[in-house]
C-alpha cells in the first residue's frame, strides 16, 4: 500500500506558484485575444458581403476541425521555417489556443447576434442609428446576455487548454508538476496535487455557468 506524503510537494510551493502565474498569464492572454478575435470573425460570419463571409467561415471551419495541440506544434516547429525569427513557447501556445478559441467563440457570437429579433434592427435604423451604432447600443447588449453562459464555458475550456502549453515546455502548472515529479520521484503526489489545484480553480467557475444557464432559462 502506498504511503501518501505531500511534504515533498509542499516543499516546492515556489515552483507551483511560478507555474500558477504562468497558467494565469497564458489564460488571460488567450481569453482576451480569443474572444476579441472571435467577435470580429463572428461579425464576419453574419455579414452579407461575400468578401467578409467566406474568409471568416474558412477560418472557423479550419480551426474548429483541427486539434489545438497540432496547431500549437505547428506554430512552434513549422512556422519559424517561414519567418526570420524564432517563436517562443508562450507565443506558440498562445497563438494556437487563441485562434482555436476565436473560431469557437465566433460561432457563439454569430448565434447570439442572429438570435435577436430583426425588429430590433428595424427599430434602431428607424430612429436613425447606423449599423455600428445599432450593433453596439441595441443588438450586442441583448445578445451578450444570452451568450454569457456559453462564453463562460469557453473561458473554462481555455483554462483547461492552457495545460497544452506544457507540450512546448512553457512554465505553467502541469509543466511544474512534471518537474517536481521528476526531481522528487513523487509522481503520485505531484500529479494529484496538480489535478486538485485545477479542480479548485475551475469548480467555482463551472458552478457559475450552471447558475447563469438556470437564470437565463428562467428569464426567457
Amino acid at each position: 500500500m502506498h504511503k501518501w506524503d505531500f511534504a515533498s510537494v509542499f516543499a516546492n510551493t515556489d515552483a507551483l506558484l511560478a507555474g500558477a502565474a504562468g497558467t494565469l498569464r497564458i489564460f488571460a492572454l488567450c481569453l482576451v485575444l480569443g474572444l476579441s478575435l472571435g467577435l470580429i470573425v463572428g461579425l464576419g460570419r453574419t455579414s452579407r458581403s461575400r468578401w467578409l463571409y467566406w474568409p471568416a467561415s474558412a477560418f472557423v471551419e479550419f480551426f474548429r476541425n483541427t486539434p489545438v495541440l497540432v496547431q500549437i506544434l505547428w506554430f512552434y516547429f513549422a512556422l519559424p521555417m517561414l519567418l526570420p525569427f524564432q517563436i517562443g513557447p508562450l507565443a506558440a501556445a498562445a497563438l494556437g489556443i487563441s485562434l482555436n478559441s476565436a473560431a469557437f467563440s465566433a460561432e457563439i457570437f454569430r448565434g447570439g447576434i442572429q438570435s435577436i429579433d430583426p425588429g430590433q434592427w428595424d427599430g434602431a435604423r428607424a430612429i436613425g442609428m447606423g449599423w455600428g451604432q445599432a450593433m453596439r447600443r441595441i443588438i450586442l447588449p441583448q445578445a451578450l446576455k444570452r451568450m454569457t453562459p456559453a462564453l463562460t464555458n469557453r473561458a473554462i475550456e481555455i483554462f483547461k487548454m492552457s495545460t497544452l502549453a506544457s507540450a512546448v515546455a512553457y512554465v505553467e502548472l502541469l509543466q511544474q508538476g512534471k518537474l517536481i515529479a521528476s526531481l522528487n520521484f513523487n509522481p503520485i503526489e505531484a500529479y494529484t496535487a496538480i489535478a486538485v489545484i485545477f479542480f479548485v480553480f475551475l469548480w467555482p467557475l463551472v458552478q457559475m455557468t450552471y447558475f447563469l444557464e438556470r437564470r437565463l432559462k428562467r428569464d426567457e
Partner: peptide, 23 residues
C-alpha cells in the same frame, strides 16, 4: 462526472500514466 469535466484532460492523462501504475 464533475471531477472529469472540470480538470484538464492532459492532467488526467498524466495522472493515469505516471501516478496510477505506481499506486
Amino acid at each position: 462526472i464533475e471531477v472529469f469535466r472540470t480538470t484538464p484532460p492532459l492532467v488526467q492523462l498524466f495522472w493515469f500514466y505516471f501516478a496510477l501504475p505506481l499506486l
